[in-house]
Design a protein around this nucleic acid. Structure first.
Lengths: 117, 117
DNA sequence: GATAGTGCTTTCCTATAGTATAGTGCTATC
DNA sequence: GATAGCACTATACTATAGGAAAGCACTATC
């Protein structure tokens, strides 16, 4: 699909939203967290346990970012030991299609590059 | 779409290829380069001019990575002033669908977060 | 009354990505 | 014969992501 003469503005326009999306998905932890939450709402400690290797500091930071991006909501029940629930938003759920296409391509890529598995 | 009990292995399996795909797409420059090449084969200097801000060193490194990932091919014509042509492979082209879904989601995200534009 | 669990925050440190700048061997042009 | 273009490579720096470890206010349990 080799197209038109390719002006700079065309490239930029084509790229901006893609860049936005990738900025949301980038880091090492964003994805594992989102995927964990796609299986149902969870508390801080639960996420920390499921996303192995992450430190509290980083998890806390990532969750803040996800909240800013309106991908998850944070509900605080101020009970005796603090209870905070994180839940994915509809907007977060809408990442499903993106994840699916990444998964499809990633699978093909993996076969291509690594031969198998 | 809140699903099953969510075992660790399920999450991992769901994630691996997605992670692979994101690893290919990550960095600041990969995408601009790929998009530039989707408009047609180009020489080193042409890419350098189109992807503004990139330095030669980084471009050279990124192109090597893309070649390793079999997303672009490198053809050297050993003429008087060196001529090297980079062209996207079919596998590289197959990123189109991914890019498209990233673009779609990114557009929605942009509207949601920034209010407009 | 010591211990453990909760959801964080703080400090300090390292690794990696990216930047800036210059240089190389060669040629064609002025 | 100076300059500029080509496709790189080299060196040395900065910025950002993330890691390790501890602390905090609080409570329920032993």
């Amino acid at each position: 699909m080799t197209q038109k003469p390719a002006s700079k503005s065309e490239c930029t326009a084509a790229m901006l939203p893609v860049k936005d999306a990738l900025e949301v998905l980038h880091g090492r932890w964003t994805l594992p967290i989102i995927i964990a939450l796609r299986f149902g709402k969870k508390r801080f400690r639960e996420i920390a346990r499921e996303v192995e290797g992450i430190t509290d500091k980083v998890l806390s930071k990532e969750l803040k970012e996800l909240e800013l991006n309106q991908l998850v909501t944070r509900k605080v029940y101020d009970s005796f030991p603090p209870t905070v629930e994180y839940e994915i938003t509809p907007h977060g759920e809408s990442l499903g299609a993106v994840l699916e296409s990444l998964r499809t391509w990633g699978t093909a890529h993996r076969k291509k590059i690594m031969g198998r598995k």
